[in-house]
Amino acid sequence: MLAAVLSLTLLGAVLGVVLGIASKFLSVEGNPVVDELIAMMPGSNCGQCGFPGCSGAAAAIVDGSAPPTCCPPGGKALASAIAARLGLSVDLSGLADDGPKIALVAEELCIGCCRCSKVCPTDAIIGAAKQVHNVFREACTGCASCVEKCPTEALSMKPLPVTLQHWVMPRPLAA
């Protein structure tokens, strides 16, 4: 009886000490994968994913509570990059990606209230108070945060026109 208790205690103690030492030497600070993912994300903290910001979304994707496709501005490109990094298989078809879109101001409706330019994460909307605003095409990320702020519904999301450089050959119909 005593031998059994002693030997089990001894065994447990020895193994515990060994593991304790090992954990000292093999400890990992934070989660490097999350940091990598944060570096991949757009970083505009637009909030369309439902998380407070890009770092929140990255953490959620890593622990599996959010799909890699949760970032609309990142689009398919980001989703497949994240999936490749995490070794996940991802269903890209679920991602509503009908080409990049940008915001467009209907000039006759704009009252120059400046509400939109305040929320734009990339400062893509230019225009002073009481002046008709304009969207700076190259800077707009298509996050659509401005659309709901507009009191006169002057802002809308319009797809970018397809050009020869951007055209993608359609996938062959599956046989």
Binding site: M40, P42, G43, S44, L78, A139
Partner: peptide
């Protein structure tokens, strides 16, 4: 685009 966005943000 994502990179440009990050820079702008």
């Amino acid at each position: 685009r994502n990179e440009a966005t990050r820079k702008l943000a």
